[in-house]
């Protein structure tokens, strides 16, 4: 019992510290938890304000993730992957995690196809946005919602 009480004291202290950190984060313009606005800002930063098209990206995400600690995220993009027409980079973002970025990938024409698969952590039910940067400077995006039963943020 004693130990439990000790734990709760520490977590309260941590909670306060986190509040302080959140306050500091707001000052520099980064919210403690990312939201749609953070993702939108991130996309704007990546695209430089260019308009983003839809389509061409196929997402493979579970509708419901039982465990937010490892959620499969896979995508494939229809592209000829030739030296003058290929997918340069793909950014994966999530709007309900402490930070919007999940991962980014850089592709080269030698790969012959554009797809990738990895596993990510999701803190709660949220939208996943995949933004692709083409070699001609245009952007495409796709979005999907994943329902998370148990969050995967630790602590």
């Amino acid at each position: 019992m004693k130990q439990t009480r000790q734990f709760s004291t520490i977590s309260r202290r941590h909670a306060l510290a986190m509040l302080g950190a959140a306050g500091a984060a707001v000052l520099v313009g980064v919210p403690a938890y990312a939201d749609g606005a953070a993702v939108a800002a991130k996309i704007k930063g990546l695209t430089g304000g260019k308009s983003v098209g839809e389509g061409a990206i196929e997402l493979d995400l579970p509708e419901i993730a039982e465990n937010g600690n490892a959620v499969k995220v896979a995508f494939s993009i229809d592209s000829p992957m030739t030296a003058d027409n290929y997918v340069k980079a793909v950014h994966v973002m999530a709007d309900g995690n402490p930070t919007p970025e999940v991962a980014s990938f850089n592709f080269t024409p030698t790969m012959g196809a554009c797809s990738a698969s990895t596993r990510m952590r999701l803190a709660k039910t949220q939208n996943i946005v995949v933004l692709a940067e083409m070699s001609d400077g245009s952007f495409k995006q796709a979005q999907a919602t994943v329902k998370v039963t148990i969050g995967g943020c630790g602590g």
Binding site: A103, S104, F105, N106, F107, T110, M111, A116, S117, M120
Partner: peptide, 25 residues
């Protein structure tokens, strides 16, 4: 020659796994 790079953020799961295509020539 570098063919594929991935940048991971803390939101990537433990034991990071990555799969990608490559055209054999």
């Amino acid at each position: 020659q570098d063919v594929f790079t991935a940048n991971f953020e803390p939101a990537v799961s433990a034991n990071p796994y990555i799969a990608f295509p490559f055209k054999a020539s």
